[in-house]
């Protein structure tokens, strides 16, 4: 069936107006409500007004991010400088015995890993997915950190493609404190700004290590994606 035929059916169906009574129900509530602005801005505003409040300052945001990260079992490490980030990565390398590390062409990532004594796989040029799967960790950048949800917002540009951040068993994000924003809406705004009308084909909010509770509601990390997620944020 064609596009026109289906759109025609949709239009015909919509030629009858929605029942007023039913439309009303969605507005009504047994609770007392603040008046809600209609339209798109009203809804973006809604994210700020109704979702959990995480403070205004960077300190507040970091604190909120930390609380949720602990709950999610995300390892959130705040370090002062790039140098200390390098050191942290080296400690992680020793602790987890990294030998093969997936990276990509990303300024911050590159400057953090340049001294890491490991074998690198760079996903910014043609790479083999099987080889990436054998990496111990994937280290990527991000576009933003979302305080309200403790998410790292990535695209295939900021995270070295679609697979680097999901195929290896450990994902490390390096970020700068200036990337911390309040809400997911703020995150979208950053991507909108950066990519104007040429959207990346992949955007993702990463919120904790991969998980499942499909067996008797018992939480298990690393269902299919990374079992570990580390976010290193450089504060200076």
């Amino acid at each position: 069936m064609s596009r026109d035929a289906i759109l025609g059916r949709v239009r015909e169906a919509l030629s009858v107006k929605t029942d007023a009574h039913v439309r009303e129900v969605a507005k009504k509530s047994s609770h007392s409500l603040p008046v809600l602005a209609n339209g798109p801005d009203g809804r973006t505003q809604a994210v700020k007004e109704f979702l959990p409040f995480v403070g205004e300052s960077l300190e507040d945001h970091i604190a909120a991010f930390k609380v949720l990260s602990d709950k999610l079992q995300t390892e959130f490490i705040v370090v002062p400088t790039i140098d200390s980030a390098r050191q942290t990565l080296d400690e992680l390398r020793q602790k987890h015995q990294w030998e093969r590390v997936g990276i990509h062409d990303h300024e911050l990532v590159q400057s953090c890993v340049d001294q890491l004594p490991v074998e690198f796989l760079n996903t910014s040029s043609n790479y083999d997915a099987h080889a990436l799967e054998k990496c111990d960790v994937g280290i990527s950048g991000c576009d933003a950190l979302i305080a309200q949800t403790a998410s790292a917002l990535v695209t295939n540009h900021s995270a070295g493609g679609r697979a680097l951040s999901v195929l290896p068993p450990h994902h490390v994000v390096v970020a700068d404190a200036s990337q911390m924003v309040t809400t997911m809406a703020d995150g979208f705004a950053i991507i909108r700004e950066k990519h104007h009308e040429k959207w990346p084909s992949f955007i993702s909010f990463i919120t904790g290590p991969s998980r499942t509770a499909d067996i008797e509601r018992v939480l298990v990390l690393g269902a299919h994606g990374p079992k570990k997620l580390t976010i290193i944020m450089i504060s200076e």
Binding site: H157, P200, S201, F202, S204, P209
Partner: peptide, 18 residues
């Protein structure tokens, strides 16, 4: 939830995988 991904199209010219 853990991953909320938005996918708009196949791999683009300037993209490396997908």
């Amino acid at each position: 939830t853990c991953y909320n991904s938005q996918l708009g199209g196949p791999r683009q010219d300037d993209e490396i995988d997908g």
